[in-house]
Structure formats: C-alpha cells, structure tokens
C-alpha cells in the first residue's frame, strides 16, 4: 500500500482525541488566525509554546508530526529563497544580481515559521480527528447556510462517502495492479508515454469497479429509504462536554493574547 498521509488519523486516547471535532475545527481556525496576527519575538515564543503544548497533549509521536511537513518542503524552500532574495532593504550580502537584505532574512524566517507552524497545527487536527468526525463537525458548523439553500447535509454526505472510499479504492488499485503484474504487466520502466499506456489495464478495471461500487451504494441507500438530511437524527450526535467549553475559553485567551502581541509587539519581526 502507498504512503499516503491523507486522513492520517493516529489512534490514541489523548485529550485532543476526545475533544469535540467542532472544537478542534474552530480551534485550528483560531490558531491559524493567531499565527498571522502575532508580531515580535515574544509573540513567536507564545505560539511556539502553544503548538508544543498541543503536540505534547496529542500524544502523537513527534516523527509523525514532522512527516506532515514533507509535502510542503518544496514550497517552503521556494518561499524562503524568494523572500531572501527579493525583499528590498539594507543589503547584507551581494553577489552578481543576487542580494540578501536584513529585512529579507527577517521575512524569510517569519514565512518559514508561519508555513511550518500552519501545516503542523492543521495536521495536528487531522491526526487527532477521524475524517468522518471532521465532516460531521463541518456539517454542524455550516448548518446555518441551509437558510440560503445550500445543501449542507448533502455536501457533507458526499464528502464523507468520498473519504470513506479513498482507502477502498486504493486497496482495489493495489490489487488490480498486482493482478496485472502477475500477468506480466510492467508499470515501472519505459518512456513516459509507454508508462501512461501501461496504466490502461489498471485504470479501466478501477473505473469499472468504482462505478459498480457507487451503484451498489446508491441502491443500498435507496433500499433503506435515505432521502437527504431533513428530520434525520444521528447515531452519535455531537454534544459539547465540559472540556469543550474549557477549550473554547482557552481559544479566546489565545486570540486575545495574539491581538495584544499584534498591538504591543515590536514591529521588527
């Protein structure tokens, strides 16, 4: 099976895992806003402490959190290089047409921190929340959009079905790939075009099975009289507990602190 970190849920029983998914969703948004609000060294120390604290609470092994950085590594490097070279200001180092400025170094460090904190923070959410809980949370949080005729329930249902089918289809793809390899198919060597052509024996059966599964699922839902979200109750309705209110309170504290850091923090960084 491939190394896919999507829906990378890491099962443990930490306090973060137990929090209501809505809290985690709103919390992640608050955290991201705070990231962009803060200013000054003290502010950065504050956010770092928050992130470190959450990481500790999540009980997810550190390597997993670092692994989430891998996909954005490229973007991170590009951002740093461009900020380093293209920010005008007092020149520190110059070579041919390249120049690095004091401001450039500052902006680059800041951007690198922001990006990596952003990714680490949000992957902390996906590591501690199952995709299904997350779509549930979003359905509830965006329920107000029903007023303007947005089919919130249907969209969230589609999302959870899509999420549910990713591992199934991946497994299926793996199986078909192996079956074709057993018939001597070669997916690895040859030119780009040859390799694209070699995908046909994999893609055709995969599509056929995806459509078949979709059909079966639609039939099964119909057979159980599914007709959308109206008057539908949930098996595990989301209910706030004490710890969730505490979490909201802490979020408010974090946001206020960030605003204060914005106002009083040195504009240097």
């Amino acid at each position: 099976m491939g190394e896919v970190t999507l829906g990378q849920y890491y099962p443990t029983n930490s306090i973060l895992h137990k929090l209501d998914p809505r809290v985690k969703f709103v919390g992640t948004l608050t955290y991201i806003i705070s990231l962009f609000l803060i200013r000054g060294v003290a502010g950065w120390i504050f956010v770092t402490a928050v992130l470190a604290g959450l990481m500790f609470l999540s009980r997810v092994p550190f390597p997993y959190l670092i692994k989430s950085m891998r996909p954005i590594l490229f973007i991170l490097v590009i951002t740093v290089i461009f900020n380093l070279l293209l920010t005008p200001g007092t020149i520190v180092w110059k070579f041919w047409i390249f120049q690095i400025t004091k401001e450039g170094i500052r902006v680059a460090i800041q951007m690198a921190l922001r990006l990596s904190y952003l990714v680490m923070g949000s992957s902390l959410m996906t590591l501690t929340t199952t995709p299904n809980a997350l779509t549930d949370a979003m359905e509830r949080l965006f329920a107000f959009l029903k007023v303007v005729k947005v089919p919130v329930h249907e969209i969230s249902m589609m999302m959870s079905i899509a999420l549910r089918f990713i591992p199934i289809l991946m497994e299926e793809a793996d199986k078909i790939k192996k079956a074709q390899m057993a018939r001597g198919a070669d997916f690895e060597s040859g030119s780009f075009i040859r390799r694209m052509k070699a995908m046909i024996p994999l893609l055709v059966p995969l599509f056929v099975s995806a459509f078949r599964r979709a059909n079966d699922l639609a039939m099964a839902m119909e057979a159980r009289c599914y007709h959308g979200g109206d008057n539908r109750t949930q098996m595990k309705p989301l209910r706030y507990k004490g710890r969730d209110y505490v979490a909201y309170l802490l979020m408010a504290v974090m946001l206020t602190a960030s605003i204060l850091f914005r106002i009083f923090g040195k504009s240097a960084i």
Partner: peptide, 17 residues
C-alpha cells in the same frame, strides 16, 4: 518468474479491461 508462476487472484474478473 511471473510467467512461470501464474497467480489468479480472488475475483479475477475484476481485472478484465
């Protein structure tokens, strides 16, 4: 090797294309 050792998977009809 795979031409010498043929493997028919479960539900092999799913690999027809």
């Amino acid at each position: 090797l795979r031409t010498h050792v043929g493997l028919v998977f479960q539900y092999p009809e799913n690999q027809l294309f």
